[in-house]
């Protein structure tokens, strides 16, 4: 990752509109996989961007904007999980018309994924979501979650084992 010292001096700071427009979908997706219930997703996404708005002036460019937003989203989702009402009922998303088979299959798949991710502890969940779904590098994952690299690898390995064990029996059953 480039350090702030190596970044081009003349690059203008991103405006909030730019940050929002480019990243809102990533943030929403990450929030959902971090455990935010779809019925709360828009509100929580809004909260993340309000925090980002307040902190944008302090953004120093040491990480990518996206990584920076993930970090805010991760902290926000952690707070959410502490106060949210479980379980995270993904299949209840009213935005998905149940009469549409494809949408229903999609919702069920998300529901199943949420159930499996929900079995992980926060650290393993965070590493797995950021690495396998959001496709950050492991170094970026560490930047978001504040782990040492070795810890992140260990959490990923453990998360993968859990998820494979959860998915494969279901697949056979």
């Amino acid at each position: 990752m480039a350090s702030a010292a190596t970044l081009p001096e003349a690059m203008p700071a991103p405006t909030f509109a730019e940050v929002f427009g480019e990243h809102v979908r990533y943030v929403a997706r990450a929030l959902q996989h971090f455990g935010v219930n779809p019925c709360d997703l828009e509100d929580e996404c809004q909260e993340v961007f309000m925090v980002a708005l307040r902190k944008l002036a302090d953004f120093e460019g040491r990480a990518s904007v996206r990584t920076w937003l993930y970090r805010i989203a991760w902290k926000h989702a952690a707070n959410y999980r502490r106060r949210a009402r479980p379980p995270y009922a993904l299949a209840r998303d009213p935005a998905v018309p149940p009469e549409q088979e494809r949408a229903l299959v999609y919702a069920r798949t998300l529901d199943r994924l949420a159930r499996i991710l929900g079995e992980l502890d926060d650290e393993r969940r965070g590493v797995f979501v950021l690495y396998e779904i959001e496709e950050l590098s492991m170094r970026e994952v560490c930047d978001v979650l504040g782990f040492p690299l070795q810890t992140a690898y260990s959490r990923l390995k453990s998360a993968r084992a859990h998820i494979l064990a959860a998915v494969e029996p279901e697949a056979r059953g």
Binding site: A4, T6, L7, P8, E9, M11, A13, A63, T67, S137
Partner: peptide, 11 residues
């Protein structure tokens, strides 16, 4: 792993 977007010294 592209370089991070930069921030100018003054917005």
């Amino acid at each position: 792993d592209a370089p991070a977007p930069a921030r100018a010294t003054a917005p």
